[in-house]
Amino acid sequence: MTATVHEVLDRRLLSISPAPIAVALSGGGDSLALTLMVADWATARGRSLLVLTVDHGLSAQSAAWTKSCAGTADRLGANFRGLAWEGGKPATGLPAAARAARHGLIADAARAAGAKVVLMGHTASDRLEAAAMRQEGASTPSPREWTPSPAWPQGRDLFLLRPMLSRTRAEIRTWLAERGETWIEDPANEDARFARARARASLTGDETDDVLPGPVLADLALATCDLAGGLAAPRTLLRRAPPAFLAAACLCAAGTSRPPRSDRLKRLADTLGGDTDFAATLAGARIEADQRDVRFLRDPGRAGLEPLSLAAGQAAVWDGRFEITTERHIAIQALAGHAARLSPASRSALQRLPAGGRGGLPFIRGEGSPVLAAISGVMARPLPLDRLRAACGLIDREPA
């Protein structure tokens, strides 16, 4: 088993890098086994290991579980960060909310430490559980070996690696027991109120799932991004693109993170399969198509363009679409209503952009838009195209 995991690490991670390798450790058997195997790999290559544990505050034992994880990290000579999901918890949809909070906390901590990849202990059994949940009507996707972080914008430029998807939960616990290791069993995993627990109970420990992730969508590298963060691709290309790409293009251009409903996504795919010009909205994006090209823009009618104030040395994400870094204090607001204050060169650049994408650009009060022109001490990086490439699998190993 160790050799299998190390083969995945060799394929996906850099042998030499100053960036730490982050691993999510809950203390359960799967994440414990992964942490032990990753620690061996990292030590042999001189790379540092960062162990991240999230206390969801949902069990009276959670503080003790975090302490146990800290002890494991100390035993392995790894750095440790205990993270807490604070605040009120929802009365419904608790598993999904906990998952979103966990990914957000882990993304923030990993980025702060300079990590590019977070390892997670999902297994073949998790894939089978997801399949069983889908059979019951859920939309739960199967975990894949390599994906971008689902937390947005906290998880920008951060990837998740799951190197144990070819092994079942039973095999992993046998491996741990042979080494005299003990692990935490969370009672919530057996709570029949939750769909995943019911799916888990329906599986046998000997089942396997060797389904591999879908192929890399290399031909979709033809997608382009304009200064307003709008994405474009040839319509002939999108006619053969899977629905997942259309969903990703909408989310990336809109700066949002909630996937569209499957029926609306299918309707968009069917319309793209025709030849008529059309415009539509989906997942916070506006889609404009003619016979040659399809453009994905932020829906100009959607709210959310709140003012943003940054101090010197800060970086933040504007509207989920632009990473703004500044060397001095600045105040940013939407460009809508302020275009007349731009320089002639910036107004000319603005006119070359789709009309629907102009008003949502970041505008520094009294200075102009850092997207349209160079502004001293301020850098604006459009995120949609990099995010789309990551979502499509065009980045398939740890960035240097």
Rank of each mutant, 00 (worst) to 15 (best):
S139M: 10
D157I: 03
S149C: 13
E171Q: 15
R169N: 15
G205W: 01
L160S: 11
A138T: 14
R193Y: 08
Q154N: 08
G230I: 04
A195P: 09
L203Q: 05
P150W: 00
G180D: 01
M164Q: 15
L212S: 13
Q154G: 02
E171V: 03
A201Q: 15
D191S: 08
A221R: 15
W146V: 04
P153W: 08
S149H: 06
E185T: 15
G155H: 03
F159S: 10
G205M: 02
G155I: 01
Q154M: 02
S202D: 03
S202E: 05
I172W: 11
R196S: 14
F159Y: 14
R156I: 13
P148H: 03
E185G: 13
E185M: 12
A177N: 02
D157E: 13
E190K: 14
A170W: 03
V216D: 01
S166W: 02
A221D: 15
D191R: 02
E145I: 10
L161T: 08
I172Y: 04
L212R: 12
P143T: 07
P187V: 05
M164L: 12
T204W: 01
L165H: 10
R179T: 05
W152Q: 07
R144L: 08
E145C: 06
E181K: 09
D219P: 00
L203R: 12
R169A: 15
A228S: 11
A151G: 06
A199D: 01
P163N: 07
L160G: 10
D226F: 06
T168G: 15
A170I: 02
S142P: 03
D206E: 12
E136Y: 06
E207T: 00
A197F: 09
G137D: 07
I172Q: 07
G137A: 05
W183Y: 14
A197I: 08
A197V: 07
L176C: 11
P213V: 06
G180S: 04
R173G: 05
L217I: 07
E136V: 04
G230Q: 02
P187W: 00
T174N: 12
G205N: 10
D206P: 01
F159N: 03
Q154R: 14
S139H: 14
V211P: 00
E207A: 08
L227A: 15
E185R: 14
L227Y: 00
P143M: 09
L176H: 12
R200A: 09
A218L: 11
D219N: 04
A138L: 14
A221H: 12
A177P: 00
A192P: 09
I172R: 03
R179E: 05
E171W: 03
E136S: 13
G205A: 06
L222S: 14
L165W: 10
E207C: 02
G229M: 04
P163C: 12
T140G: 06
G230Y: 01
S142V: 13
W152K: 04
R200S: 10
W146R: 07
S139C: 03
E136Q: 14
R200W: 00
P163L: 10
P215N: 04
I184T: 13
T182H: 12
P141C: 01
A170R: 14
T182P: 00
W152F: 07
E181N: 05
R173K: 11
R198D: 07
G205P: 08
R198E: 06
T204E: 10
L203C: 04
A151S: 13
R167K: 08
A223S: 05
S139N: 13
P215T: 11
R173T: 02
L212V: 14
G229Q: 08
L227R: 13
E145Y: 00
D206F: 05
E178D: 15
E145G: 03
